[in-house]
């Protein structure tokens, strides 16, 4: 990925995955692979920070949904960080995903 960057920060049992740039069909799969690879099985909780994502569509939502269901199975806490009014938050709210993946303002 080029200007879409994924940064992983691990602090104790918490993994923060920060994404900047646009997420669409061209890079969603890669985002998912990198995110999954960063999460060890002894992780306690994961935050996916989409606050600096400029565009996110259903391809990106698929990643959010997939992470939500996988982490639930592993009993790892999961939250999506995106401030009110940010593009990612608007899409998540618009599609009812907020009920599935807990949203925090970042």
């Amino acid at each position: 990925m080029n200007e879409t960057r994924i940064t992983i920060n691990t602090d104790g049992g918490r993994v923060v995955i920060s994404v900047t740039g646009d997420v669409d069909l061209s890079n969603a799969d890669q985002l998912e692979r990198e995110a999954v690879a960063a999460i060890a099985n002894d992780t306690l909780d994961v935050v996916l920070d989409l606050g600096r994502v400029g565009y996110l569509d259903s391809a990106g939502l698929r990643v959010v949904y997939s992470l939500t269901s996988r982490l639930r199975r592993l009993q790892i806490d999961f939250a999506v960080a995106a401030p009110e009014g940010s593009p990612a938050r608007r899409v998540i709210e618009m599609t009812g995903m907020a009920a599935v993946a807990p949203l925090v303002s970042g």
């Binding site: 569509d57 259903s58 939502l61 698929r62 949904y65 997939s66 899409v91 618009m94 599609t95």
Partner: peptide, 10 residues
């Protein structure tokens, strides 16, 4: 595939 077809509702 799973979780597809959300585009139209968006």
């Amino acid at each position: 595939g799973e979780n597809r077809g959300r585009g139209m509702s968006i």
